[in-house]
Design a protein around this nucleic acid. Structure first.
Lengths: 106, 106
DNA sequence: TTATTATGTAACCATTCGGTTACGTATTTA
DNA sequence: TAAATACGTAACCGAATGGTTACATAATAA
């Protein structure tokens, strides 16, 4: 089974790759690898495979270079799931706020 | 190291537990386990431990029963991360929409 | 007080994950 | 054509993950 967006995004290096593509635009596999000196280039390549599996990347080959571009659409699934929780944490924050105001200078 | 919210939420059973607590309010460990017959009760207990580690649960003991309540606040971290991507996928969707309109009945 | 219930945990196991090095292949450059 | 470059992948490895069964413990019920 291909990985879900939830799984793809669970790893900090994979989030880093997505962040990089978001902020820098399309990059080659080697450019991406160079940004993560803590792991080897094939290590990054394996992360790219997971992200591809989750459909979070588009790739375009140009000669011997392979350019990766972010496809953020699968992230909507996470956003959708989170949406149902938003009103919950807003309620929680307001409750906390009320509680702290109630005890101000007490 | 304790698990992050990203890791906690990567597993479908753990998302199911959170969903259940969100929609049904506080539940006992046993109630939760009963909703996941595909795995054993200790299996659910281990998932609860991960969710606790990510601070997504509050627990209250009442006699021999242990009631779990959702604490959604750590999910804001995920929401925050996703926020930076939202305008990207909106742009992508609009591009797709324009493209489909451009080829309508062609 | 004894049995039952509610729960977590320990020990174990198979699988997955995240990393490595070594290698294969296609493309460009010399 | 030979060398260098840009990649992915295979094979391997240790650690983490997700599951199990067996057990310990505390609280309630009989």
């Amino acid at each position: 089974m291909p990985p879900t967006a939830f799984q793809a995004v669970a790893d900090p290096i994979r989030r880093g790759i997505l962040d990089l593509l978001r902020t820098s635009g399309p990059l080659r596999a080697g450019d991406l690898a160079a940004h993560f000196p803590q792991i080897s280039r094939p290590g990054v390549s394996k992360h790219l495979r997971v992200l591809r599996g989750a459909q979070l990347l588009q790739q375009e080959r140009r000669g011997r270079e392979l350019w990766y571009r972010l496809d953020p659409l699968p992230l909507r699934q996470i956003k959708g799931w989170l949406g149902q929780y938003q009103r919950f944490w807003q309620a929680r924050l307001e409750a906390l706020k009320r509680a702290s105001e109630g005890t101000e200078n007490n």
